[in-house]
Amino acid sequence: MKGMTIIVKTISSWVKVLIILFGIYIILFGHLTPGGGFAGGVILASSYVLLMLAFGGEFVKKDLPLSLVSKLDCLGAFMFILIALLGLVFGGVFFANFLFEKYGQPLHLLSAGTIPFSNIAIGLKVGASLFLVIYSLSICCKAGELDSH
């Protein structure tokens, strides 16, 4: 993959910022507005897929080391289970919402207890793993087999 023309490259590197910002917004406000970790993660992954299409696979490899992405992937999943286990420790029940005070308040990011944190974890996991799946399938799966969990 060599990448596309200079116009596409320039525009997509501008648009990238907006897409990533939008993805982060969807993840952070997942408990207040429609969306959440999964949708936001897909948007984050799609921004890098766009870059990959515009600049070619080699650029992404330089810009974003794959081992870091797969570590982020594992970190997301691990955080999610950690939150659930913390619920077991502090709330007495697995997945208990131990920070819970009241239901999500509009415009209050830190409401609804552990849900925003879970959303961040899922966003990391989904974004990283979806990007890895698409990337590894596109380059004739160098590490493709193992990423589909």
């Binding site: 081992s67 797969s70 570590k71 594992c74 970190l75 999943a77 691990f78 289970i81 950690l82 659930a84 286990l85 077991l88 697995f94 997945f95």
Partner: peptide, 22 residues
């Protein structure tokens, strides 16, 4: 014994292991 630990322990370890690196 809280039952979810049977699922949580292997799952958490599974995601922890790749972070050790080579």
């Amino acid at each position: 014994i809280p039952l979810p630990v049977f699922i949580a322990i292997p799952l958490a370890t599974a995601f922890l292991l790749p972070m050790f690196g080579k």
